[in-house]
Nucleic acid binder design. Sequence first.
DNA 1: AGGTACTACGAAACCGGTTTCGTAAATAAA
DNA 2: TTTATTTACGAAACCGGTTTCGTAGTACCT
Lengths: 339, 339
Amino acid sequence: MQQITIKALARELNLSVSTISKALRDSHEISPATKSRVLQLAARLDYKPNPYASSLRGKKSRNIGIVIPEVADSFFSLAINGIDATVKEKGYHSIICLTHEDFKNEQAILKELQNGRVDGVLMSVSSETTSGKHIRALMEQHVPVVLFDRVLADVPAAKVITDDIASSYKATQHLLRNGCKRIAFIGLSQQLSISADRLRGYENALREHGNKLSSKHILTCTPDPKKNLAAIKKLLQQKDRPDGIVTAVEKLAPLVYQACGQLSLSIPQDVKLVCFSNLELAGLLNPSLTTVTQPAYEMGQKAAEILLRLLDSKPVHKGDMQIMIPSRLVERNSSGEGN
Amino acid sequence: MQQITIKALARELNLSVSTISKALRDSHEISPATKSRVLQLAARLDYKPNPYASSLRGKKSRNIGIVIPEVADSFFSLAINGIDATVKEKGYHSIICLTHEDFKNEQAILKELQNGRVDGVLMSVSSETTSGKHIRALMEQHVPVVLFDRVLADVPAAKVITDDIASSYKATQHLLRNGCKRIAFIGLSQQLSISADRLRGYENALREHGNKLSSKHILTCTPDPKKNLAAIKKLLQQKDRPDGIVTAVEKLAPLVYQACGQLSLSIPQDVKLVCFSNLELAGLLNPSLTTVTQPAYEMGQKAAEILLRLLDSKPVHKGDMQIMIPSRLVERNSSGEGN
DNA sequence: AGGTACTACGAAACCGGTTTCGTAAATAAA
DNA sequence: TTTATTTACGAAACCGGTTTCGTAGTACCT
């Protein structure tokens, strides 16, 4: 490696290692003249401090962990952009840890992160996660955690969410207004906060509208797309076939299109569809997809800001313990009249 | 933090720190009996070694850097999955660094990575990158680098690419066979390997087919989507309007759809379209999009495997210095007859 | 002049592991 | 029995920074 170390600088300038270190950190105990000599030599030799050496002493790695189910997902990739832009400004690096919607993976990852590899964690739980014990364990090691989007009630961490209940309510209402009589809801595990809340908004809208709820119209999906496709087709082959669908997460949208295609059901004539999704291409689908679009970038950004405050040991206002950024219903053809 | 350190284990067992360390690393100089006592206590106290302490002495961080332009892109997010799955098996962590297609960012990031934060780097260059000097500088600090997809000729690193020339040739040929007379090519910077190679394949196909090449049919885009949309519209408003388009990167596809929409040109009747893209939803677009689909996951996987060999100081076969994994042309409606 | 305060720096401990080297005791070889 | 070797462990150096503490030299105050 032949790295330029502080020792090398010290030797070159006939100064002690501690003087160099202090000069580089702009300590008041070093004279301006010495500081400038040190800074100049450091620049000339292209000195780059070893981050792990300082980490060892200072207990700060300047790494933050992003623990999410998946990166091939518009919501998460946009959230990553928001997070990364925010933490980078403060000199932090993002370590991305993918759970692939597997709780065992998530546990193992959080355990790993207890060893000081990261100073803090931003997290969205897997769809299989039912308990927050592993997260609390991490927090007990004094690793600050901020949850975003997929949160967990039993974790005393700051949370950044969107208005899942209200926006699902609006989406369902939109379908009702467009004439749907039998609206189905396709979600992930009921343990998952976003799925449960979006189900709640759906139920509220139906109830208020005087529609009766039917468990046959509520489908809970798994992380396995093949099984999900089969389940969706089954849902659409019931005798009381749904004429409207709300899906709770992005990756379910293509499956509904596929299922409808295979069953020769046309969207929106036979089935009207609204999906929670951040797909950039929603408007270009056939038919274009009505979406509830979450503020993914902003949520990542906000969650990162809060984490940075925690890492600075700055106070986090009570109002920031649970932040809600609203989603937007974007009406397109999949929920329309179908001319 | 109140971490369980080796020192704590040593005190508890009345052994020396070095004995604990050796026992944990299964050194032959420690007796089986002692080893098992140490292992048991470590398990009981949930001892987690500080990765940065070992990193400091051993010069190994067990972090690898993934330097890419963007994460909100199907190719890169799939590649990340391939990389992450591969390196995770060997106990490495992925640090993702986004350049946002900005060369200055890319330079700054590689500079940062020279300080030992990562043991190796997997990289796909930005569209603005014209020189590999910054990459060579990193390699000279003995940080192994493997380039994937967007490579650079003047960097003596292992490279994992797809058959850009051949697949672009096939895509163009496909349009020619479907009756296109004036085929346009929309790429990124000509400096970018994939864009240049895909252009070459396009040109080869036209030449072989006896079509003359026209610079008016070759559009070079920027990282700015608005400007790109305007440029694409201008391309489609020429007197010799193209009746076929090949686009070199994923994010250009939606812009072509938009441009055609705004100009009331219908795909594929007025303009037939083939895009290099890993979009999962290509089949659901309106019309469904004919794609050249790159083996993104496999490319990430392969690049990671090579990097791991380099990190193990294992020999990399000459054949592995430049690996080519073929792409697939998936014909859909955007390039068809449009009945 | 004597005492105090401040400035500017160096020596050394420290962070938590890893590794080298030294050594007492046990075992094997001569 | 003596010597050589092996076994099993501990002391200490080390990685590259940071931080505490001590101190020589100068300036300031009575």
